[in-house]
Structure formats: structure tokens, C-alpha cells
Measured scan of single mutants.
Amino acid sequence: PEDEKKAKEALKRANGDEDKAKEILRKLGVDPDRAEELLRRLR
């Protein structure tokens, strides 16, 4: 869904750096736990 698209985009923008991607997602208003879960799934 929408969050998943955001997560993929964030990872791309962060050049695969998960911590940076998490930060980006947090700024986009995605719940930190949700962000973590999404990134884990994309790994």
C-alpha cells in the first residue's frame, strides 16, 4: 500500500541505508515501528 511505496522510495533515497530510510519515513509521518517492519520486509 501507500506506506510500502514510501518505504521503497525512502530506501532508494537513502541509498539502501536503513537508518537513513527510517529517518525519512519518520519525517513522512510513518509510525517508527511500522517503518521498521516495512524496511525489514523489503530487505
Rank of each mutant, 00 (worst) to 15 (best):
K22H: 06
R40W: 07
K8Y: 13
L39G: 00
A21I: 03
E2K: 07
R13M: 15
L38Y: 04
L25K: 00
R40Y: 07
K20E: 10
D3E: 12
P1W: 15
D33K: 13
A14W: 03
K27Q: 15
R41Q: 14
A14Q: 02
A10L: 02
R43F: 08
E36A: 11
L39R: 00
E2R: 07
E37L: 09
L39Y: 03
K8G: 05
R13Q: 15
D31I: 03
E2T: 12
G29A: 03
P1F: 14
G29E: 02
E2I: 09
A7T: 05
G29Q: 03
R41G: 12
E23T: 06
K22Q: 05
L42Y: 06
E18F: 15
L25P: 00
E9A: 11
L25E: 00
E36K: 07
A14T: 06
E4H: 09
R41P: 05
V30E: 02
A7D: 01
A21F: 05
E9D: 11
P32D: 10
R40I: 11
D19Q: 14
D31H: 12
R43A: 09
N15T: 03
K6Y: 13
G16Q: 04
E18V: 14
R34L: 13
K20S: 06
K8D: 04
A21K: 01
E2Q: 09
A7Q: 02
E37P: 02
K22V: 08
R40T: 09
R34V: 14
G16Y: 09
E4T: 10
L28Y: 08
A10M: 03
R40H: 11
D31W: 05
L39S: 00
D33T: 11
L42M: 06
A14Y: 04
E23Y: 05
R26A: 13
L25C: 00
E4K: 06
D19G: 11
K5Q: 14
E2N: 11
E4L: 15
D31V: 05
K27A: 15
E4V: 13
K27T: 13
D3F: 09
K8E: 09
R41E: 10
G29D: 03
A7I: 08
R34K: 12
